[in-house]
Design a protein around this nucleic acid. Sequence first.
DNA 1: CGTCTTATGTCGACGGTCAAGCAAAAGCTC
DNA 2: GAGCTTTTGCTTGACCGTCGACATAAGACG
Lengths: 396, 396
Amino acid sequence: MLIDTGGSATGAGVLLSILRDGRPRTRAELAQLTGWARSTLSLRLDALLNQRLVAPTDDAIHSGGRPATTFAFNRSARVVLAADLGVTHARLAVTDLATTVLAERTAEMPIDRGPVPVLTWLVESFHELLGECGRGIADVCGIGVGLPGPVEHDTGKPVNPPIMPGWDRFAVPEWLSARLGAPVLVDNDVNIMALGEYWAVRSQVRHMIFVKIGTGVGCGIISEGRLHRGAQGAAGDIGHIRVPSFEDVVCRCGNTGCLEAVAGGGALAARLRAAGEDTSVSRDVVELVRAGNVPAIQAVRQAGREIGTVLASVVNFFNPSLIVVGGDIAESGEHLLAGVREVIYSRSLPLATQHLGILTSELGDRAGVTGAAVMVIEHVLAPEAVDQAVMAASGG
Amino acid sequence: MLIDTGGSATGAGVLLSILRDGRPRTRAELAQLTGWARSTLSLRLDALLNQRLVAPTDDAIHSGGRPATTFAFNRSARVVLAADLGVTHARLAVTDLATTVLAERTAEMPIDRGPVPVLTWLVESFHELLGECGRGIADVCGIGVGLPGPVEHDTGKPVNPPIMPGWDRFAVPEWLSARLGAPVLVDNDVNIMALGEYWAVRSQVRHMIFVKIGTGVGCGIISEGRLHRGAQGAAGDIGHIRVPSFEDVVCRCGNTGCLEAVAGGGALAARLRAAGEDTSVSRDVVELVRAGNVPAIQAVRQAGREIGTVLASVVNFFNPSLIVVGGDIAESGEHLLAGVREVIYSRSLPLATQHLGILTSELGDRAGVTGAAVMVIEHVLAPEAVDQAVMAASGG
DNA sequence: CGTCTTATGTCGACGGTCAAGCAAAAGCTC
DNA sequence: GAGCTTTTGCTTGACCGTCGACATAAGACG
């Protein structure tokens, strides 16, 4: 229960947080920005150089006399292992400290095989991916994992996941970190996708909602730049909000009229199948839309309207400045988004919509692994964590 | 653009934040809690004693040898001026640093008289209230004001308030602090009510929603213990969420089917008036309910159901651990709450509702002034602010 | 009243930080 | 290549915050 007051709380962390934007800077600039003496600054800069978290850049700024060497964040100092585990699919990546993917892999990997088989495969694959991009296990500063169900983020354990048999309360972080020797962070897959998309717009946006429309419907919430997980980590479960005039539609959750049962990818596939199309999963619906199938396009647009109805309420309540729509169904082009926009702009308050952006995911199916990497990077590169690492390296 | 790295960042602030809970502690306990040497601790404790923010308590703990003097937060060190300005009504209070009301006053004060008349009255009344509780203007550490409309919290200016003629972009903080000589914080009235209610439960609750049902309907949102204001400061505007099967009801906002037009106090009064009752404002509805008028009771309970419909969606989306219902109509007893509970518990997900509390306001019509005081106290007693004050007092 | 125990104040030592100054380095201009 | 300009690294002395140790204070107990 001690409060860290420092002793040698070196302060290298805040220096790094300034350099995290990637812009190269001279010592003089950094001294002015931090308010430290040049001698002190050099001391702390050296600490970061020793950690290889910062590196001198090639181009020197010249202003008449001796050119000033510039220093910039070294995104290659460490690597992050990121995993986005879906219900049937898995995507893995090795990224640098700026979320750039260095090596990646996707595979069919049903989550219901259980934690040990899936995570064993995960560890093996990570080793292979590390080999692909020429890095070693020693370079790994952390592992981020997204799971398709509710996760207690503090402990990293899934809690009562409806579609992950065998995973309930499995200690994922302990299991993985024992085998990979680095800190492990776990969260819900929609949350990490939100984090990934937020990363790209973090300089302009403070409040954001990421809506994933796959088989089901869910969303991740960013408030004041931080993920809002809710009291039970169940925030963002908009898939089971009841939509009007569909009280007869039965949802897998046992209730009726849920958004997911009306506008989710699974529901669309089922409805089109009933109409004679050969659609079993949400990706089949996307195929059909891309092929120009009119009933499929109409269904997707109408789903957009239903989702828009719910989001219109969410906009009034939460007042975000950006809504990002992702997931399988979102990749079927503008049809879905058109429906969403149509309803939100007509139903939400002008004050809340005048500066509201409604966009499709920039990262596409990479949002998950990017977000997993972001989660790790934010943890490992937080000022206090950097201070501690620097202290440990110099202190012994 | 300097980053405060200290010099003499005394650290007295974190010490005070430990003592803020009100529990008396000995020097030894505090040294252990902070991790500082006893000598260092004494130094910082002295700084807080000089500021009178901490005071020795009478009872000394005895354990064989010399008894240890205990120290506790001195809630009487300063006073806060708090104002909750409604559309027609105003409530003012002088509170101590633990939000205890020392003197208060309510008055009819229509906000549409404009900023200068209202604020002039405010300043006069504050002086009188200070006299009543035997404190001087020098004791005031800050002023908190709640206004019935959207406020840009950073600047304290109302922005496009629909029902506050003459207030648009009026510089409330500058005007008041020039006359009262202390920092002024301004926010929306619903936000400060949320803050006030949160204060009472802050040790158990991190995510909360405060719903105010007066003439209109609005809510304040607490995420991770902090007020979520949204991108335009417009978050919590649930009064204009569309509720199903009321598409014919016209709202004062120009749209149709808004929750406020269906279940707000103004709407209830109008509906009962059309049925022959003598109700013009929401308080009249409450009177009627208290008198046992059956149509009024039915109307209020049904309003609770309509509000519950919206809140059920909000619960799925936001996953709070507590919903507090306040405002005029909430004071009509359990009828409203029964309607709200009925719908939320039947429509929201079990995971989100199993530990969800739905309660009426503990503070009642004092929630506003309490919240205004909380806003000021959190600002003035924040560790950095305390450090700065201590530094200023000792440095010159 | 003396002794014992624990709390508290004081003082010197230590270490981190700063400002200043100087010499060396690295490029440019002439 | 000499001279100029500016950055950079290094050193020194001073200052301040923090710590540990010692002396003193305050009450209890016999």
